[in-house]
């Protein structure tokens, strides 16, 4: 198949005049590969995606994925193929599992706890403020000091 493509390029009348040809034989498939590859991890590299890496294994895996795309496999089938061989480590988007629940829920849990904590803290503050009675003189002095601190030119 590839030699045919090379041959086509060699015959000037077949190649579009002076227009560079895409590197990939099938740009649509290549776009799908790219979309998949940015979510997959190159195993031998230092934290690089399969799309970015030039490592030989990454090239092999891209070839493998390209072939699966050509066979019209779904994204899920392709990802399952890789996970069954390399484990969840290849996925940059960790799958939702019991062990990753905290990972996915954590940020929103944190936000919820933070928001509740803030409301709670403000309420309690407000209550404390009214509970503690300062003498008028004391209060004036403190507010004056504080506002001096805040307003000092």
């Amino acid at each position: 198949m590839r030699w045919l493509w090379v041959l086509l390029l060699l015959i000037p009348s077949f190649a579009t005049a002076y227009e560079a040809s895409p590197l990939a034989a099938n740009p649509q498939a290549e776009a799908r590969l790219k979309a998949l590859a940015v979510e997959l991890r190159c195993l031998v590299c230092q934290n690089q995606t399969l799309a970015d890496s030039n490592a030989p294994l990454a090239e092999d895996l891209r070839r493998e994925v390209r072939e699966m795309i050509a066979k019209d496999l779904t994204d899920k089938e392709i990802i399952d193929f890789l996970v069954s061989r390399y484990g969840d480590f290849v996925l940059y988007r960790p799958p939702w599992k019991l062990t990753t629940t905290l990972l996915w829920v954590g940020p929103f849990l944190l936000l919820g706890v933070g928001a509740i904590g803030l409301v709670f803290a403000l309420r309690r503050r407000q209550k404390k403020m009214t509970d503690v009675t300062l003498s008028e003189a004391e209060h004036n002095r403190v507010t004056q000091l504080l506002s001096e601190g805040a307003r000092r030119p």
Binding site: V44, L57, R85, Y86
Partner: peptide, 13 residues
């Protein structure tokens, strides 16, 4: 030679 069996075995290095 093409590293296919390697992929099937999950070889990464």
């Amino acid at each position: 030679e093409p590293g296919r069996i390697g992929i099937n075995y999950g070889v990464y290095g």
